[in-house]
Design a binder for these strands. Structure first.
Lengths: 184, 184
DNA sequence: CCCTGATTAGTCAATCTTGACTAATCAGGG
DNA sequence: CCCTGATTAGTCAAGATTGACTAATCAGGG
C-alpha cells in the first residue's frame, strides 16, 4: 500500500467517519488540487485498508438499496497515518513530467514547426497560470498547494521560454548556414 | 493508447529497429530522466502497438532460446508518431505532486514536529539539486530535461522555505497565545 | 575446458485502475 | 400524486502495471 493515497484516505477518516461515496465526493471537491482519486479506486483502496486492519466499517441498511459501509479508522490505521504522514513530509520524490517526452524528440521536427508548437504549449500554460491566480479564496492548506502549483508553473514557463529561444537560435543557424552553402 | 509512452517507443523505433529488451535498456539508461518504463510494461505496450498496426516485428531465432521479436515502425506508426509528438509539444498537462498530500494534513501535527520533518524534506531536495547540478555532461536533449528538473526543484525549494516559515510563524503565535492565556 | 555468477531476453500471475453500468432515491414541475 | 431527470451509492469486467520468475548464453578465473 505504501503510498500517498492511503495517507489521503486515513487523513480524512481520522476527522470523520464516512462511507465510500461521500469520501470520494469530499476528495473530488475539496482536495482535487492534490489528488485525483477515481471513485472505483477509492472503493478498492478502502477494501484493502479494511483487509489490512486500518479501517473498520459498519453496514448501514436503508430501504432496500444495497447497504452502505460507513468506514471508521482503527488504532492500527491511526498508527499507519502517523507513520505515513511523517514519511510523506520528510521525504522528496523526484518526478518525471509527461511533457518532457516530446522534448526528447524535438530534433525530429523542423525547428520552425517545433517553435510554433511550443508557443501553443506556452499559451496553454499561461491560461492555466491565470486560472490559478484568479482562483477563489481557497481554505488554508489548499492555498499552500495552489501556491506550489503556481510556482511550478511559473518556473516551467521560464524554462519553456529558454527552450524556445534555443530552438529559434538553432533554426537561425541552420537557415544562415544553408544560405551560405548555396550562395558563393 | 493515447499517451506519452507510445510516443517514447515510436520515437526510438523510428531511429532504429530494436527488440524489446534492448528498447527497455535504452530507455532505462538514456531516457531515464524523462520516463520510467518497466520492462514488463514495455513488452505489453509493444504487443498493443503491434495489434494497432503501429509496429511490425520479425521473429529472430538464435540457438534454442525463445525467439526475439525485432520491432520496426510501420507507416501507420510513423503517422501516429507525427500526431503524438505534435499533441505532446503543443499541450500542457497540469500535475499533482505526491508530496502535496502530506501538506493537506499539516495541521494534524505539532508545528514543531512539522517544521522538523519539512526540514528533512528540504535537505533531501537539496541533495537532489546538487546531484542534478553535478550531473555528467548529458547529451543535447537530455540537458533540456535536466534543466527543467533543476528549475522545478529550485522553485519547490523556494516554496518549501515559505511553507516552513509559515508553520514557524503559526507555532510562535500558538505558543505566545498559550502563554498569554496562562499568565494574567 | 569446466564451473559460476552476471547478463540477456522474455513471460506470468497478482495487483491496481478505470470507464461503464445498475439501481434506488430524491426534487420539483405539471 | 405521478412522472422525469438528477443525484446517490456502489459494482464489475476489461485493461494496465509490476515484481517475481524462468532459462539460455556469456565472461573469465581456476
Amino acid at each position: 500500500m505504501e503510498d500517498e493515497r492511503a495517507l489521503l484516505l486515513l487523513g480524512i477518516l481520522r476527522r470523520q467517519d464516512m462511507h465510500g461515496y461521500r469520501l470520494h465526493e469530499f476528495i473530488d471537491t475539496n482536495l482535487a488540487v492534490c489528488a485525483d482519486l477515481k471513485k472505483a479506486t477509492a472503493y478498492f483502496l478502502l477494501d484493502k485498508m479494511a483487509a489490512e486492519g486500518w479501517v473498520s466499517y459498519e453496514q448501514v441498511q436503508e430501504g432496500n438499496r444495497p447497504p452502505r459501509r460507513v468506514y471508521r479508522i482503527t488504532p492500527a490505521g491511526e498508527q499507519a497515518f502517523q507513520r505515513l504522514i511523517r514519511a510523506n513530509l520528510a521525504t522528496y520524490a523526484s518526478m518525471r513530467f509527461p511533457g518532457d517526452v516530446g522534448l526528447a524528440f524535438l530534433d525530429d521536427l523542423k525547428p520552425t514547426e517545433a517553435v510554433h508548437l511550443l508557443r501553443q504549449r506556452r499559451a496553454a500554460m499561461l491560461d492555466a497560470l491565470t486560472a490559478l491566480q484568479s482562483a477563489p479564496e481557497h481554505a488554508g492548506t489548499a492555498q499552500l498547494i495552489i501556491e506550489h502549483q503556481r510556482r511550478h508553473l511559473a518556473a516551467e514557463l521560464d524554462w519553456l521560454d529558454e527552450v524556445i529561444a534555443r530552438v529559434e537560435a538553432k533554426s537561425r543557424k541552420t537557415r544562415s548556414s544553408g544560405r551560405r552553402a548555396s550562395s558563393p
